[in-house]
């Protein structure tokens, strides 16, 4: 009740802000990536995936990272999540350097089926995400779980085992489990790449709804240009093998967005063509 009130207010504020000036904020960035290197040793040879990479991400923005495989986009996400450490440089989250997974940030993985717990019911999986430090009562917890199950449309499957629900539902479950932690930053690594086209479209609209209805920064890795343009306020395009940032494009399409109206927008088509051509030419050149 209280929460939804805030959410509605927030949605109004965000819509107003978006109408004024979409992807720019005068606030300090929530994430600052400062001159990071990431090198791996593959059979004795050192390979640089990211080289002297810097960028900042504004609070409550929706940023997508695209690029061909091997461009380091998933590596970048793991570094942001604190799951791996950069070889050089540092990443600041709210001004503090990231050493290990920080509070206020949750990563959602591509292999959702492997990240949910098959021995816990759907509701019990979502409950796992509740911050243990929150000290909620049993009733408060189950109310919170019910709220998040409803958000992702899994209320009717609360008592199912994960093995009994579809892939799209499993990914929604992973999203609900992440959101119940109330993260400031949600990191998503190609979260919709393993589901069919229609499920994917539904999940995209669900994610847009989630981003509109609460203050949250989303960093979204994908190899799908259309998906990046549809969802984001800003798209970062990375080049292959440490080539770094090729494009940094502001997507100033009107909000709120959805599958039908946004995809039909001439602006969407133009931006999509431009980004697609850029990546396509890189691929041809390599």
């Amino acid at each position: 009740m209280d929460g939804s009130q805030t959410a509605t207010n927030f949605a109004a504020t965000r819509a107003a802000a978006a109408a004024r000036q979409p992807a720019t904020t005068t606030d300090a960035p929530i994430l600052s990536i400062n001159a990071i290197d990431k090198r791996f040793t593959v059979r004795g040879r050192e390979v640089a995936v990211l080289r002297d990479f810097s960028c900042t991400i504004a609070r409550n923005s929706f940023v997508s990272v695209i690029g061909p495989s091997g461009c380091g986009k998933s590596t970048l996400l793991r570094l942001l999540a604190g799951l791996d450490r950069p070889t050089a440089g540092q990443i600041l989250f709210d001004g503090a350097p990231i050493n290990g997974p920080p509070p206020g940030m949750i990563a959602v993985f591509q292999q959702y089926a492997k990240s949910i717990f098959p021995w816990r019911s759907v509701a019990h999986n979502v409950a796992f995400g509740i911050d243990p430090a929150s000290r909620l009562s049993r009733t408060e917890k189950s109310a919170l779980v019910a709220e998040h199950l409803a958000l992702v449309g899994l209320s009717d499957h609360a008592d199912h085992w994960p093995a009994q629900i579809s892939g799209g539902m499993q990914q929604r479950l992973a999203i609900a489990r992440a959101l119940i932690r109330k993260p400031e930053v949600l990191l998503m690594d190609e979260p919709f790449s393993a589901v069919d086209a229609m499920t994917r479209a539904l999940l995209q609209d669900l994610l847009l709804h989630i981003w509109r209805s609460r203050p949250i920064t989303i960093v979204f890795v994908t190899h799908d240009v259309d998906e990046a343009v549809l969802l984001s306020q800003r798209v970062l395009s990375l080049g292959r093998f440490g080539a770094g940032l090729r494009e940094d494009v502001t997507i100033d399409l009107p909000q709120p967005r959805d599958q039908i109206t946004t995809r039909a927008d001439p602006g969407f088509i133009a931006l999509r063509q431009r980004l697609f051509a850029s990546i396509f030419h890189q691929e041809q050149a390599s």
Binding site: A81, G82, L83, G100, P101, M105, I106, A107, F109, Q111, K114, S115, F117, F128, G129, R181
Partner: peptide, 9 residues
């Protein structure tokens, strides 16, 4: 992935 999940939470 299961252990990464534990870490991110």
């Amino acid at each position: 992935v299961l252990l990464d999940t534990a870490r991110t939470f």
